[in-house]
Simulated assay, not measured.
Amino acid sequence: MALLTPQAVSRTGLTPTYSAAAASTTVPCGERIWLHVKNTNGSSMTVTLTSTAVTLGQATVDVVVTVPATTGDKMIGPIAPGLFAGAVDGACAITYSSTTSVTVAALRI
Rank of each mutant, 00 (worst) to 15 (best):
A2T: 12
L3P: 12
L4T: 02
T5W: 07
T5C: 04
P6N: 10
P6S: 06
P6Y: 12
P6F: 09
P6T: 08
A8S: 15
A8H: 13
A8Q: 15
V9M: 08
V9T: 14
V9F: 13
S10Y: 06
S10T: 15
R11W: 04
G13D: 02
G13K: 00
T15G: 00
T15W: 01
T15R: 02
P16L: 07
P16R: 02
P16A: 00
P16K: 06
Y18H: 15
S19V: 14
A20G: 14
A21D: 04
T25F: 06
T26F: 03
V27N: 11
P28C: 00
P28V: 00
G30S: 07
R32H: 13
I33N: 14
I33A: 08
I33M: 10
I33C: 08
W34G: 03
L35K: 06
L35W: 10
H36T: 06
V37K: 07
V37Q: 08
K38V: 06
N39E: 02
N41W: 08
N41P: 00
G42N: 11
S44K: 15
S44V: 05
S44D: 12
M45W: 01
V47E: 05
T48A: 03
L49E: 08
L49G: 04
S51P: 03
T52K: 03
T55H: 12
T55W: 12
Q58T: 06
A59T: 07
T60N: 05
D62S: 01
V64H: 00
T66G: 01
V67E: 03
A69S: 01
D73H: 05
M75F: 14
I76C: 10
G77I: 12
P78S: 15
A80M: 05
A80N: 02
P81Y: 01
P81F: 01
G82R: 03
G82W: 08
F84I: 15
F84A: 12
F84E: 14
A85P: 03
A85M: 04
A85T: 01
G86D: 14
G86H: 14
G86L: 08
V88Y: 09
V88P: 05
V88N: 10
V88R: 11
D89Q: 11
D89L: 07
G90T: 04
C92K: 05
A93I: 13
I94P: 02
T95Y: 04
Y96S: 01
S97V: 01
S98R: 09
T99D: 02
T99V: 13
T99R: 04
T100A: 08
T100C: 02
T100R: 07
S101K: 07
V102G: 02
T103H: 04
A105R: 08
A105S: 13
A106V: 11
A106I: 10
A106R: 12
A106H: 10
L107I: 15
I109K: 12
